[in-house]
């Protein structure tokens, strides 16, 4: 079956050699500030986005697509900005927690409504909610700064005031730790009973109900996780960029997340990060030449993946790897 949204079975352990490759990848990322300092910020953005993409990926595992998950990315970022503005000298971990909790809370409120729907309604209602929040950000400019957004002052780190370079370095490694930690958590969650119950929404809700489980509650558990992941990504992005704008919530952002999730390999956590890194590199270097047609390229590429390579990059990657192993 050529479905973009594939539920991997609970036993999805990749071969040992492949795991080594992933560890090497993380080590390589950790070395970026020394090997290629000019890429540090770019990778930082990619990691922040990657976390949000994992949020979208979680939902793909239940066969659902949200066109509005930038909402949670943006809510968290704006909470960070508001807290920084009202409590000067706030600690980074303070806004990380506040932003993530805020995104999760928003996920609960929106989730209680949207988990009643699947497919078209689910995707479009999420889009509608993100558009509502975007309008609020634009219209109530005396609070939100309108299209200009809000600048974030640099937070302290465990009470210490860091210089710009030190803070960026701190942020970079924090992002790596969060990516590895939350990525690991999400993979474990997928394989756990709660995660498996959530993923059954994709194939049979009738049976789920007849197992004594409320499909809506199962859906909500995944929705909360996805919102929280977007929230962590949003805070990382806001602190790395130093400014939040309504663009954080704009549908194009949501579309980008869906695009990367499908590009990386729908349903794959590692694929989400791999996709985010590739995406961010290509965007940074190609959009200078193709800025006007960037979205068009994304759309066209999305069509190509859906129609011809439904496994995404990770699918190609693992297939090539498996083939290489078979022949050697």
């Amino acid at each position: 079956m050529s479905s973009v949204t594939t539920t991997a079975p609970a036993t999805g352990s990749s071969p040992a050699a492949l795991s080594l490759l992933w560890i090497a990848g993380v080590v390589l990322l950790a070395a970026v500030p020394f090997l290629a300092p000019n890429l540090q910020l770019l990778v930082n953005f990619a990691l922040a986005k990657g976390l949000a993409v994992v949020g979208v990926t979680v939902l793909l595992r239940a066969g659902q697509v949200s066109f509005g998950h930038a909402l949670f990315f943006g809510i968290s970022a704006y909470i960070g900005a508001f807290v920084m503005a009202s409590v000067p000298g706030m600690d980074f971990f303070g806004i990380l927690i506040a932003g993530t909790l805020g995104a999760a809370l928003a996920g609960l409120v929106v989730g209680l409504f949207v988990v009643r729907y699947r497919g078209i309604f689910f995707g479009m209602l999420n889009l509608a909610f993100s558009m509502i929040f975007w309008s609020i950000l634009e219209k109530f400019y005396h609070i939100t700064g309108g299209a200009d957004g809000i600048r974030l002052t640099r937070p302290t780190v465990l009470g210490m005031e860091l210089g710009r370079d030190a803070f960026e370095l701190f942020l970079y490694y924090t992002a790596i730790v969060l990516v590895v930690g939350l990525g690991w958590f999400t993979i474990r969650w997928f394989a756990s009973p709660v995660g498996q119950l959530f993923q059954t929404i994709k194939t049979n809700e009738t049976r789920l109900e007849y197992l004594g489980i409320s499909p809506r509650r199962a859906m909500l558990s995944g929705y909360l996780l996805s919102a929280a992941l977007c929230g962590v990504g949003g805070i990382l992005m806001a602190t790395a960029q130093g400014v939040v704008t309504p663009e954080y919530v704009w549908w194009v952002r949501s579309a980008e997340m869906v695009f990367i999730a499908v590009l990386g390999g729908a349903g794959s956590v590692r694929g989400a990060f791999l996709g985010a890194l590739i995406y961010e590199f290509v965007r940074t270097y190609a959009s200078a030449y193709a800025g006007d047609v960037w979205q068009m390229l994304l759309g066209a590429f999305l069509l190509v993946i859906i129609l011809f390579a439904p496994g995404g990059i990770i699918g190609i990657f693992e297939r090539v790897f498996a083939r290489g192993k078979g022949t050697s």
Binding site: R188, A191, S192, V194, G195, Q196, L197, G212, I213
Partner: peptide, 18 residues
């Protein structure tokens, strides 16, 4: 296993269903 998880109300997110 999913049925058993539902029946027993298993909640631990870090333990594999297997």
């Amino acid at each position: 296993l999913i049925a058993a998880s539902a029946r027993d109300g298993l909640r631990n997110p870090l333990r594999s269903m297997h």
